[in-house]
Design a protein around this nucleic acid. Sequence first.
DNA 1: AGCACGCCGACT
DNA 2: GTCGGCGTGCTC
Length: 614
Amino acid sequence: MLYAKVVVGLPVEGPFDYIVPADLISRIKIGVRAWVPFRTKSIIGYVVGITSTTKIKNLKKILEVIDEQPVLNKSMLRLSKELAEYYCCSWGEAIETALPEGLRKGKKIVSINVNTHSDKKDNPDVILVQDLDGKERWNIYLREIKDTLNKNKSTIVLLPDLNSVLKAQDKITPSINTPTSILYRKQPKELEEWIKVREGKANIVIGMRSAIFSPVNNLGLVIMDEEQDSVYKQDQVPHYHAREVAFMRTNIEKAKLILGATSCSLESLQLVKANRIKYDFVARNRDFPEIKLVDVKSEQRSRKKRHIILSKYLQGSIYDTLNSSGKVLLFINRRGFATFASCRNCALVLKCPRCNINLVYHFKDNILNCHYCNFKMEAPSICPNCNSNYIRYTGAGIETVESELSRIFPKSRINTIDSKKHLNTKDADIFVATSVITKEEGLNFDLIGIIGIDNSLNRIDFRSSEKTFALLSSLLRLTEKKIIIQSSLPNHICFQALVKKDLSLFYEEELRIRKQLNFPPFKHIILIKLRGRQEEKVKQASQDLFKKLNTVHKLKVFRTVSLNPALPSKLRSKFYWQLLLVSSNVKKACKSLKIYLKDFSHSGIIVTVDVDPL
DNA sequence: AGCACGCCGACT
DNA sequence: GTCGGCGTGCTC
């Protein structure tokens, strides 16, 4: 008798044993998909092992073997297993994150599996390349891609967004003469391209996060551009980070890994410091802009105003720049007009009914919009609570800056850009933009004004400095002349490192603080989120779990740190609580965590685990 | 996750 | 007596 060990794409561990019927024995192979009866339904399972013994009674039979050739080779099976162990999900869930939708849904494919495994003699090599304007970085990428092609090996190039993927393709194709393939989830021809890559018809794959799983033959090189970008982290279960998966995969397949960045992540930098990876810093060959700081607090005092959008100094510089027909960028990382709307009479603050978060007023459409769940309502002119007509809108967004500018500079042409409204003309005097502007190429401003950056710095998030610094660094690319930063914390190391034109000042200080506090990259954080419709139940369940994990933390694979309502604590009508664990060994921590979560069940409560949350 | 099973209240 | 809402537990 022959049995197949099968895993499924559900949050259940497995593997599950099934009888292989006689007529399927010749077709069963490790790595193929099969239809299996599971509880009452038939679902897709992935064969991860074949044995002649089993301890389970009353086995069911495999219904059908789908693939002639395995869709998962040895490397991919190993990678998905490692991913499941690190990110605390089932092996089947990990496999499903690595496969295109068509295959997950059972689509049959006719495809030759070329499967030329790499010779595995090369030592895996990881390099972090940092440069401020990206040009030098790309020269290195192109050289390495050609090198890899010459060795008859494949390359995977990862970019943070679709626009960058298409631009990357334009940079790569002219200098090589081999077909490339674009792979990302929701690509209309995802499966078609996947098959093409697997058959060796494209040796270069360019894509986003999920392209790290591309079925290339003989992987020689992975390039991950803008490696600090948080889009490489999946915000659904399993919460994998493409950089971590790239490390796993290049290690399994003995390929080279290049991490590129404008301002790198502290995770990667720490690996450089620990001599675990190599480092290549490319000095900027363009002029470093002059950085000027304006202390808005002191100006608020002297002008006796509560909020200052454009300081006198910034106004003067804009005036001078416009006078010499220069182009100005005003950067404010907030969409809309006001951060919140409140009633002056009864002090009611208008909040999202589903998320309990302040609604943002959008002047152009006269609506209130929740930036978390996209709830929209018409902006009321009278207070829904006390019927007074004293609704006041405070805080600033790009629309506020725009209206302030048109008041002070009535003759200038102003253009706003945010994630919902892209750059469509370069013909304006003043651009007002959110962080989407940092993705644009070929822009060169004569003056950049940075407004409201304190909001980014004052987040309740230990990474807020790192994120702010990355944002400021990416703005450096957009000018060689002058940047004015308005802040009430002008002495913050984020700004001072830029003023002194020495980025390492920031990194050194931030690493020192992280080490002192036992934060990443020195320790790993594991975030456990609980959600449910009833606030009290979620709270109770979280406290129970916290107590339980507290009593077992003697095992020392993890340490419980905190228990509190998540931020936001209410999202899409569900309440959220979270537990934080700290660990030095993620795999061990997840192994025991899986055991504890298995017999932790509260009705109506969903528990998810996020390893290395961002 | 998703589905059946079982318990309990409401209504023919 | 029987229908259906939801809480609970299991999946080879």
